[in-house]
Simulated assay, not measured.
Amino acid sequence: MSVYVYAITKTEHPLDLDDVRGVGEDGGDLHAISSGSLSAVVSEAPADLSVARRDLEAHHEVQENLWSDGAILPLSFGFVAPDEDSVRALLDERAEAFSQRLDELSGTAEFNVKGVTDEDVLLRAILTDSEQARTLNESIRDGGGTYEDRLALGELVAQEVQNRNAALAEEVLATLRPLVVSEQVAPPSQQYFVNASFLVEDARSEEFTRAGGELAERLGEGVELRLRGPLPPYSFV
Score class of each variant (00 low, 15 high):
V3N: 00
T11F: 10
H13F: 05
P14S: 05
P14A: 09
L15T: 02
D16N: 12
V20I: 12
R21F: 11
G22L: 06
G27Q: 03
G28I: 02
D29G: 10
H31S: 11
A32K: 02
I33A: 04
G36R: 11
S37C: 10
S37L: 07
L38C: 05
L38T: 01
A40C: 12
A40K: 02
V41L: 08
V41A: 00
E44W: 03
A47R: 11
S50C: 11
R53K: 13
R53H: 13
L56D: 03
L56E: 04
H60A: 15
V62C: 06
V62A: 05
E64C: 13
L66R: 00
W67Y: 15
G70N: 07
G70M: 07
P82W: 08
D85V: 11
S86D: 12
A89D: 13
L90M: 14
F98D: 00
S99Q: 14
L102W: 03
D103C: 12
L105D: 01
G107V: 06
E110P: 00
F111G: 01
V113F: 02
V116Q: 06
T117V: 15
T117P: 05
D118W: 14
T128V: 11
S130W: 04
S130E: 03
L136E: 02
L136Q: 00
N137C: 08
I140Q: 06
I140E: 04
D142I: 08
D142G: 11
G143Y: 13
E148Y: 10
R150P: 01
R150T: 08
A152Q: 12
G154W: 14
E155Y: 11
E155K: 12
E155H: 12
L156E: 03
A158L: 13
E160Y: 12
E160M: 14
Q162N: 14
Q162A: 15
N165T: 15
N165S: 09
A167K: 13
A167L: 09
A167T: 15
A169D: 07
A169T: 09
E170V: 09
V172G: 01
V172K: 01
L173Q: 07
L173E: 04
A174G: 11
A174Y: 03
A174I: 06
T175S: 09
P178W: 00
V180L: 00
V181F: 03
S182G: 08
S182D: 08
A186F: 02
P187Y: 06
P187S: 15
S189T: 15
S189E: 14
Q190V: 10
Q191C: 11
F193M: 00
D202L: 15
D202R: 10
E207V: 08
G213W: 06
E214A: 13
L215F: 02
L215I: 04
G222A: 07
V223E: 03
R226S: 10
L227V: 15
R228A: 14
R228T: 14
P230Q: 07
L231N: 04
L231A: 09
L231S: 02
S235T: 05
F236D: 00
V237G: 00
V237M: 03
